[in-house]
Amino acid sequence: MDINPILLLAAIMVASTPILLAAIGELVVERAGVLNLGVEGMMITGAVCGFIVAHSTGSATVGFIGAAVGGALVSTLFAVMVIFLMTNQVATGLALTLFGVGLAALMGQSYVAEGQIIVPKAPIPGLSEIPVLGPILFRHDLVVYLSVALVVLVWLFLTRSRAGLILRAIGENAEAAHALGHPVRLVRFLAVMFGGACAGLGGAYVSLVRVPQWIDNITAGAGWIALAIVVFASWRPGRLIIGAYLFGGVTALQLNIQATGLAIPVEYLSMSPYIATIIVLVALSAGRAPGSLGKPFHASS
């Protein structure tokens, strides 16, 4: 077997970054009690916005900012409908995906097969020289570090800050939180926008780094995987990292296994993360979903 584990693990970090970014955003959204199934739609909107902006400005950094803004903007559509018009979250999320995929294809029409913008690698001085760990962890581009940092920040926010506490309280029981005077709708609105921005960043990582080019449907279902990861992680940021790298890892691993010529029915291997997610759900049935996840909230005064 000639799979180099160091290179494989490094590749997994890169392959997992888009889904990790999208998932950390969705995690916050769901902790606030909103189920947004439109992650795929927001991701692909981010992918096209990032590509267009990076192209017009020549800067990948501005491109990523544009992607976050694009993702957040399209998510406000969802937010307004779900939070203020009290539409069904499941149906609205699905509609958002349909809309986003179409919108992105429409916006990107004249950018197909345009040349790439180089996103430089940013090895961390010192750390990148550590044997084994250096090449795996510390020789990536900034977005990879950002994605991990974001997970840590979200964890700190949720567990250590008052605002995070309020957000979780709203997610557990919106009516009770409202009775205590917390701004349920505002918090949820901001959470959805944060989710949109993160999904946008994840999408842009696909179109600016991982592929990198713009093509219709470039995210190819990554948004749905992000949803799965949130569940897999049972809504905890720490487990989210494991989940993302596991999902990304299975994909990378099955390609590597094929290249070595081992006779493993790889097409079946690619469904293993989903089954693992279900098993985790069952095993951690105590670590349940936020109490008011998916339920509409109307402040009856």
Binding site: D2, I3, N4, L7, L8, A11, A15, V206, R210, V211, Q213, I215, I218, T219, A220, A222, T251, A252, L255, N256, A259, T260
Partner: peptide
């Protein structure tokens, strides 16, 4: 594209 990129990278690494 994403899968093709990953496949190419896996091949190069091997």
């Amino acid at each position: 594209p994403a899968k093709e990129a990953d496949a190419a990278k896996a091949l190069i690494e091997q």
